[in-house]
């Protein structure tokens, strides 16, 4: 408890994030109304006791849509981060542990992916494999790979020169064992912080892809798709865009504050390390 009090950023950020994540998780078992249930007679209702956030242009319950949409956004972003970290971290560690041609290859691969703006990569993937939530995951995950590879390599390089790593070499550990047993545990906090930030970027990316029609497809929903559906009516029913828009803003702010707080909380020295990463 004291820990949380000392880190108000983390507390606020985590609380907001967990609140939305819980809303999303609850939608798995319960939403006030089924999200695919269309009832034209009750459309464009304002918020009231029966529909906490009102109803949209097809008479769907906005609160239910937001819950389900939040889940989609979180799942897509979390899977994308998993893909990015799952492939990027080993690549980065390998680059740091082996050096030489391996490092060169990993760095050039990262440069190559970085050379394309993330959204272009995403549009390429969805254009090749068709729009849909799964392809959005792949697309966002793909541009997460170099981010994690860089962070892992940077963190690992600064650890690799320390004495305990050299000590690890004495009993004959190879680069793979060094990376796994000494480097990975020591950069874990870095990865977690980066993961939190990538999560918020992933949610934005999912919203962006769905907004241009390449992400989640109806009857499933996501916050970006809700924005897209509502935008043509923005002048008449601004509420329909405000609700998903504000949700995205709150989630992203929550995750970013949590990421910052996490960085402060886990290890003050990491700031130093991270500065090296950026440099």
């Amino acid at each position: 408890m004291n820990f949380l009090k000392r880190h108000p950023n983390l507390t606020i950020g985590l609380a907001g994030t967990i609140l939305f994540a819980l809303l999303g998780l609850i939608s798995l078992v319960w939403t006030p109304y089924p999200i695919a249930q269309i009832d034209i007679a009750r459309r464009f209702l304002g918020p009231d006791a029966a529909h906490w956030l009102g109803t949209d242009n097809l008479g769907r319950d906005m609160a239910s849509l937001v819950m389900s949409g939040t889940l989609t956004s979180f799942v897509v972003a979390a899977l994308a981060v998993t893909i990015g970290a799952g492939i990027g971290v080993p690549l980065g560690l390998a680059a740091a542990a082996w050096g030489g041609p391996v490092e060169w290859l990993v760095l050039r691969f990262s440069d190559f992916l970085f050379a394309f703006p993330a959204i272009i990569v995403a549009i390429l993937v969805t254009a090749l494999f068709g729009p849909g939530a799964i392809n959005a995951v792949l697309a966002i995950g793909l541009f997460n790979i170099p981010v994690f590879a860089r962070v892992a390599r940077g963190g690992a390089l600064s650890i690799a020169v320390l004495d305990f790593v050299a000590a690890g070499r004495l009993p004959g550990l190879g680069p793979a064992s060094i990376a796994y047993r000494h480097l990975l545990p020591n950069i874990m906090s870095l990865i977690i912080v980066q993961g939190t930030i990538q999560l918020s970027l992933g949610i934005l990316a999912e919203a962006g892809l769905s907004y241009v029609g390449l992400g989640t497809q109806p009857p499933a929903t996501s916050l970006g798709l809700m924005l897209r559906d509502a935008q043509s009516m923005f002048l008449i029913h601004p509420w329909l865009t405000l609700v998903p828009g504000l949700c995205i803003v709150l989630i992203v702010i929550g995750l970013n504050i949590a990421g910052d707080g996490l960085r402060d909380a886990i290890d003050p020295r990491l700031r130093q390390v991270n500065a090296n990463v950026v440099a």
């Binding site: 695919a36 249930q37 269309i38 242009n57 097809l58 029609g213 497809q217 109806p218 009857p219 043509s232």
Partner: peptide, 26 residues
């Protein structure tokens, strides 16, 4: 076309009520 995309979602909901599950492809 706006009318097609909207009608599609509404029909998918109406068909679901009788057991016909539609996958919408834009």
């Amino acid at each position: 076309l706006g009318y097609a995309r909207l009608s599609g979602q509404i029909i998918a909901s109406q068909f679901a009520a009788v057991g016909i599950k539609l996958e919408l492809i834009n």
